[in-house]
Amino acid sequence: MRTKIVAGNWKLNYDKKTTNKFIESLKKSVDKLPLNNTRVIIAPTFVNLSSAVEKVEKSNIEVVAQNMHQATSGAFTGEISADMLKAVGVNTVILGHSERRTYFNETDQALAEKVNTILEKGMETIFCFGELLEDRKSDNHFEVVESQLKNALFHLEAKDWKSIILAYEPVWAIGTGETASPEQAQEMHAFIRSIIEKKYNKEVAEKVSILYGGSVKPANAEEIFSKPDVDGGLIGGAALKVDDFTAIIAAI
Rank of each mutant, 00 (worst) to 15 (best):
K4C: 06
K4Y: 10
I5A: 00
V6Y: 00
K17A: 15
K17M: 08
K17I: 08
T19E: 07
N20L: 15
N20A: 12
K28R: 11
S29R: 08
S29N: 11
D31M: 07
D31H: 11
K32C: 10
P34I: 14
R39N: 12
V40H: 04
A43M: 13
A43H: 05
P44G: 09
P44W: 04
P44Q: 09
L49C: 08
A52I: 03
K55I: 06
K55T: 12
V56S: 07
K58M: 10
S59L: 10
S59P: 09
N60I: 08
E62C: 05
A65Y: 01
Q66F: 14
Q66P: 07
N67S: 14
Q70R: 13
G74P: 14
F76H: 13
F76V: 10
T77R: 12
T77G: 14
I80R: 02
I80A: 08
S81M: 09
A82L: 08
M84H: 08
M84T: 13
K86H: 11
V88G: 06
G89L: 04
G89P: 10
I94R: 06
L95S: 08
H97Q: 07
S98Y: 01
R101D: 01
N105M: 08
T107W: 03
D108E: 14
Q109M: 11
L111R: 03
L111P: 12
E113Q: 14
V115I: 15
V115Q: 00
I118W: 02
I118M: 11
K121R: 14
K121Y: 05
G122T: 12
M123V: 03
T125Q: 03
I126H: 02
F127A: 13
F127E: 09
C128W: 04
G130K: 05
E131Y: 12
E134W: 10
E134G: 07
D135T: 09
S138V: 09
V144Q: 07
V145E: 06
Q148Y: 04
K150E: 15
F154S: 09
H155P: 00
L156P: 00
E157G: 15
K159A: 14
D160Q: 07
W161C: 06
K162Y: 00
S163H: 15
I165E: 01
I165V: 15
A167F: 07
Y168Q: 06
E169A: 05
A173I: 09
I174H: 03
T179H: 12
Q186I: 10
M188H: 01
A190E: 12
F191S: 11
F191P: 04
F191A: 12
I192E: 00
I195K: 05
I195F: 03
I196K: 02
K199F: 05
Y200M: 07
E203W: 01
A205Y: 02
A205M: 08
A205R: 06
V208S: 01
S209W: 00
L211I: 01
L211N: 02
Y212G: 04
G213F: 09
V216S: 03
P218M: 10
N220Y: 05
A221K: 01
E223D: 15
E223S: 11
E223M: 08
I224Q: 02
F225D: 02
F225K: 05
S226L: 04
P228K: 14
D229W: 01
V230G: 00
V230K: 03
D231N: 14
G232T: 05
I235S: 06
I235M: 10
G236K: 03
A238Y: 03
A247T: 09
I248W: 04
I249H: 07
